[in-house]
Amino acid sequence: MSSGSTPAPARQSLGFAAVVFVFAVVMIGTTLPTPIYPEYQRQFGFSGGTTTVLFAVYAAGVIAALVGVGQLSQIVGRRPMLLAGVVLSLVSAVLFAIGTAESLLFVGRVFSGFSAGILTSTGTVAVLEQAPKARKAVAGALATAANIGGLGLGMFLAGLLAQVTPWPTRAPYVVHAILLVIAGVALLVVRETVEKKQDARFRLQRPGVPSEARRVFAAASIGAVAGFAVCGLYSSVAPNFVGTVLGIHSPLVVGVTTASLFAASAVAQIVLGRLGLVPAIATGSIQLFVGMILLAVALPLASLALLLVSSVVSGAGQGLLFSFGLRAIVAAAPDDRRTEATSAYFVVAYLAISVPAILAGVAEGLIGLTATGVGYAAVMGVLCVVAFAGRGRFAGVAD
């Protein structure tokens, strides 16, 4: 029995649910701006390229947190780092809710990225450690669902609130701030799983690829780059596609279009989680390739239906490529170097989600949205072919 009258298994289950909730709530905040970027453009008068820079600033914050504080939870504990992520996310929500100057948006995105980086490194481990024995088998899938699913929920929530309330650029952040306060309170039931060591010293989490995993890492990174670059396209440029190319200015439509990708990613990782590595990489490559074909057709035709289908198909492919690529790297790396290998993989992923989006924003001003989208889809399609061709490198990796 634990303290009080609550049985230990029940308390552990409660802590497990709380960590999953905290993880999801923080990740919700990272995608809230996406459906309302067009509103920000009207409010502040900035170009579509500025939205891609805002997205890149967020990604830079994620990478900085992964490298800067990735190992800190081993020293100070999981709960303090989770709380830090919640607080930083709350600061971001407040800055966006105020939203009286363009500079506040950029600062808010930095805080949002840093909070996401903390949860990416600490939240996943916390979910696995908090899981009761009966839930160990699904803990990894639930961590993924909290992460990727939270991204999708953020877009949907922002689009819905921007559509049904008279405060499109404030209501989503007020609701998110309330959820974050609840998340902070929920941490009270989460048990600490790290035994703090007095002589432990802080060090940067250096990304690195051990020689044993380089072959697999190179193959997995191709799929991760393609998948996350597509995520970057939908998160930073798709709102302009929907408004300018399709002529639809509904925040809810933008939210649903972009959220569909992340929802499909989470579902694919859970439903198809028992596939072998080679079949999963092959399936993900094919799905993402088909998604890019649909995108290249949807934009010239200005078809919302095809764009939605593309989002779902692409999301499923991204989910398989990323999650199974990560699984292969973890399996190939030595036990004592898995953390730095996974950190390197996440750094590659977040560079892929930001750099191509910036290039797309630049291209948009030069050749237009439709041509940019079709060209982007073509490049990602080539990467999918390369990822499919390299599926054999995963053969023999323990799954």
Rank of each mutant, 00 (worst) to 15 (best):
A264P: 12
V313G: 01
V309F: 10
A344N: 09
T193E: 02
S47D: 13
A377G: 12
G375A: 08
L14H: 12
G152H: 00
V355D: 06
A101R: 07
G4C: 08
Q287V: 07
I118A: 09
L252R: 00
L294V: 07
P300L: 15
G152P: 04
A344I: 11
V355H: 04
G325H: 01
T193C: 00
G223N: 10
A137I: 10
L366F: 08
L32S: 01
A226I: 05
L299T: 11
Y173F: 12
G227M: 10
S92D: 12
D335C: 07
L288I: 13
S260E: 03
M380C: 12
L142N: 04
A341H: 15
D399Q: 14
L275S: 15
V67M: 01
S260I: 01
V181I: 15
R391Y: 11
V110E: 12
P210F: 03
L321D: 04
N147C: 00
A328V: 11
G223Q: 12
A186S: 04
L104H: 14
G373W: 03
G85F: 14
L187S: 05
S236I: 13
G108R: 07
R135L: 13
G108L: 08
A24W: 09
M27Q: 11
V245Q: 00
I248V: 15
M27G: 09
Q318Y: 15
Q43C: 08
L66E: 03
A220N: 03
V253L: 06
V312K: 06
S112T: 10
P35T: 03
V216A: 10
Y40T: 05
F111M: 09
V254Q: 03
A134Y: 08
G368C: 01
R203G: 02
R203Y: 06
S354V: 05
F44G: 01
L295Q: 02
H176N: 02
S13L: 09
E192A: 06
A341G: 13
F202A: 08
S265F: 15
A268N: 11
A10S: 08
A17L: 09
S236E: 14
L366A: 13
G140R: 01
A387S: 14
L301H: 01
L32P: 02
S211F: 15
L153E: 02
A8N: 04
G61L: 07
V256G: 05
R206M: 01
A146M: 00
T372S: 06
G317T: 05
Y345K: 10
G4Q: 07
A84F: 14
V278A: 08
G317W: 03
V297I: 13
A141R: 14
V313L: 04
S211N: 15
V271H: 14
A143W: 05
L383H: 04
L180N: 09
R78V: 05
V362T: 09
G325I: 00
S311K: 05
S343Q: 09
P356C: 09
V107T: 10
V253W: 03
